[in-house]
Write a protein that binds this DNA or RNA. Structure first.
Lengths: 203, 203
DNA sequence: CTTGCATTTTACCGGTCGGTCAACTAGAGT
DNA sequence: ACTCTAGTTGACCGACCGGTAAAATGCAAG
């Protein structure tokens, strides 16, 4: 019931794991290395996390929080015109990846996409958590599309499927950019996300 | 100079590695396990491959061969009307993933996308090889688009960028489908690939 | 029959993996 | 003062990691 945690050990572990999982994948980062970087003993790690997977789940949650409270919240601000939200998101993703590359020397891509392709055939619990995040993201796209239709900015379409297509496109562009280690691809391909359209199924 | 290889040891190793890397990622499959499955001793493995990474490169080449000689070659058959080639490719990807899931119980996704997100921040040689494969795929899309423009089937556009966008979209849809362990997403989202358009940069 | 080379076998290397355990510390509640 | 418990420590586990080395095979060319 404490508002302040008694120690910051757990959050130091999560912070150390976040950057490493993001830059080097899940399997390639050991608990020992995370502990060393967090200044924590291994036994202490297992006081907070029953297993490595549980750490990964916490890391995913933490990234999702950054995401929901950071530029994605800004992008999907309901006060913005709906289609501008999508432009804003693409822009933000571009600048974020660019900043990471400047600091880190590498385009690290989307942690959710990275983990999805790495673990989702082997761990249904992690897959479920990642899926939930994608589902949430999809609904943000859908809300924007629905509002755009209501406002007459775009013609009616299947907003649920189009939203999913847009999310897929964003992940795909980030994947391709990562293969080139070049965030500029996001700049060149990103705006085309608004050309995606899936019509309502008729009759 | 032999046309027939003296033994099939090397190809058995590659075959065992292919299915495992595809279904469980690169880092999660050990050389020992591959050797056991191929009926090969570890020392024999290192007679054919200087390192695990070189095995991965061989596996990528082998997948790329399947790809170039299999359904992708069929899809991008120059005899087909250009936009039908793209439909065909989406269809083929859908049926392939569906078949894998029926046999394996899992949607394994695209091996090139999987490996890209897993290793491309850690191994520039593998990243370069994967990038070359994406570049080749991109050119197939571009050829189809160029021909479609020539035939007047579609309006002129930036075929290079649109081709890249289409490849990104395909990878993204496969990623999202993998997060749902459901190839049907490919069926629902795939056809929208043809709605992607990037205009020629004007002055 | 012999030489030579590709292939295969077997045993081994140091290091790291995820995870466990029992002992210890410190602080809060009574 | 005593107890309870969350937190911490450091040693330890068996298994596996990628990779090495040397000796044994088999086979083909001379």
């Amino acid at each position: 019931m404490n508002i302040n945690s008694p120690t910051d050990t757990r959050s130091r572990i999560v912070a150390a794991a976040k950057s490493r999982f993001h830059s080097r994948s899940y399997a390639n980062v050991g608990i020992q290395e995370i502990c060393e970087n967090a200044g924590v003993q291994k036994g202490s790690f297992y006081h907070f996390f029953p297993s490595k997977r549980d750490l990964a789940l916490a890391v995913i949650d933490d990234f999702a929080d950054d995401w929901a409270n950071g530029f994605v919240a800004e992008a999907f601000d309901p006060a913005l015109p709906p289609m501008e939200r999508i432009d804003y998101l693409i822009d933000a993703a571009y600048f974020w990846q660019k900043a990471i590359k400047e600091v880190h020397g590498r385009m690290l891509g989307c942690i959710f996409g990275n983990l999805t392709l790495e673990v989702s055939t082997q761990d249904d619990i992690m897959r479920a958590k990642l899926l939930a995040i994608f589902t949430l993201a999809k609904s943000r796209f859908k809300d924007a599309l629905d509002q755009a239709v209501v406002e007459g900015v775009i013609a009616p379409l299947d907003s649920a499927l189009t939203a999913e297509a847009m999310l897929a496109y964003l992940e795909g562009v980030i994947l391709l950019a990562k293969s080139q280690n070049d965030p500029e691809l996001l700049y060149r391909l990103g705006p085309a996300i608004k050309t995606l359209r899936i019509e309502l199924k008729s009759n």
